[in-house]
Amino acid sequence: MALSVAIGKPGNGQNQAVRTVSLEGRLDNESAAQLDQQLLPLWLEPFDLLVFNLARLAYISSMGLRSLFAAQKTMRERQGRTLFVDTQPAVQKVFDIVAAVDVGSVFASAAELDAYLDSMQRRASQSSSGDPDRA
């Protein structure tokens, strides 16, 4: 089981500040460099939020964690955030053991993440149009 990486860009009407990376298979000593390579073009694009969809990621080792650490580090350097959604039990167990991700950056499902992103977008549009309570 190799690693399959799918990078999703937002369509019209979707939040342009978000990129979604869906991983399928194993993120390990064999595939970590592949993920690093496939993420490289992404760093040239302007966006604030990187979402790893891990619904189909069955396995991760310390080599795979290194790639996720690197992605999180890059996003922080860009003043952005990294979120993880739909993490499977075997991968979540490794995350928990090594405290690999910040609490609050893991979402149980795509629906939960969508609700979070919607609330973020509402907040952003409210602040850009001014707070009506202060008018």
């Binding site: 080792s61 310390s62 964690l65 650490f69 999180q72 922080r76 053991i97 090594v98 991700v101």
Partner: peptide
């Protein structure tokens, strides 16, 4: 043991493998 309280941006994968061995 690795310093799991360190910020992610300064964390290294080194040491995590041994930590996984101990934990699992």
């Amino acid at each position: 043991p690795p310093d799991l309280s360190a910020p992610l941006e300064v964390r290294r994968a080194g040491g995590l493998g041994v930590h996984l061995l101990r934990s699992l």
